[in-house]
Amino acid sequence: MMGGQPGSGSRTPVELARMPAAGALHRRALLGSLPGLGGGRRGPDLPAVELRVGGVTVDRAQLADYDRVCGFRLSDRLPATFPHVMGFPLALRLMTAPDFPIPLLGLVHVGNRITVHRPINADEALDFSAYAENLRPHDRGRQVDVVLVGSVDGEEVWRGVSTYLGREGKPGGRDRGERRAAPTATARWRVEPRVGTEYARVSGDHNPIHTSRLGARLFGFRRPIAHGMWSKARCLAALEARLPDAYTVEVAFKLPVPLPSTVSFALLPGGGFTLHDSQGRPHLAGHLR
């Protein structure tokens, strides 16, 4: 293991008065990536802090827009992926801190695990906390887990763990895994370019690789790509009628979904599911338990 692995008791709690503004944090990340403007002040370890914000309420208009963009039915029950959107600015604040060991613009989202302990309704206020753990070596750089926890009245009701890869000048990107024959598709979806801009609007994740052809090219993509968390949400929307009250759903993000494209969704035995392209190459591999 690498440094920066504090236990929960050694993290300093930092209470914030309100949820940070995601737009300002993205601008900070962009400026910090420029030479002479903060890119060289990063520490070798993870920050030993736990950021907290209490009493975060659901914006029902945002929830309705999110449901529409991701394919969920309109409901007062939050989709499993929606608390990730609610608390994302807190995680973003953590990852854009000057002492975070990997620059935000060098991070690739390679995996996400969400645990829903019980249904969450839109009239409930959530207390969020965010911290980073498990900084570890990878053959293309380093990986880190960013943990986001949602609680109601002191009880944890939701937990998300996002795994990011910092490529740090080494070749390669997402772990594509072993090439296999594509499973039989349960559904096929046309993913239009507007998915990038609409999901950015409802989620606050305005990374230009999802919204701009020029921005995508600056990061090595020929055209914009869909957000990984949109892909996960769209798969969960297809499974909505099968979801129990409490579950864990984990995905590994493989090949990006270029915009526009057509993708195939497939159910697998034992709770597995995949999203793949017309040639059978995987975009996402998931498991529900």
Score class of each variant (00 low, 15 high):
V263K: 04
H227V: 09
G220Q: 14
T248H: 11
A246M: 14
S231L: 05
A200H: 09
R217Q: 13
E198A: 09
E240H: 08
R223A: 01
Y247V: 01
A200P: 00
L267D: 04
L214H: 15
M229N: 13
F219T: 02
R222K: 08
G220C: 12
I209F: 11
R217A: 06
L239C: 08
S212G: 10
L236R: 07
A266R: 09
T274E: 11
E250G: 13
R234Y: 10
L255R: 15
S231Q: 09
A233P: 08
L218R: 15
L236T: 02
T211D: 09
L259K: 03
S212W: 04
P224K: 06
H206F: 12
H276C: 14
H276Q: 12
I209Y: 03
S264N: 14
S261V: 03
P244I: 10
F221G: 03
F221L: 10
L259C: 00
P269Y: 06
L267V: 05
A216N: 06
V249T: 12
S203R: 00
T197L: 06
A252G: 14
E250M: 13
K232R: 02
C235N: 02
I225K: 01
H210I: 15
G271S: 00
D205V: 05
L243W: 06
V202C: 03
P224E: 03
E240A: 07
S231H: 08
R242T: 14
I225V: 11
M229W: 05
H210K: 14
L239D: 12
G228I: 02
Y247K: 06
G271Y: 00
V257W: 11
H227E: 08
L218V: 12
H210N: 11
T274C: 13
L243G: 10
V257I: 09
G204P: 00
K254D: 03
L267E: 04
L218Q: 13
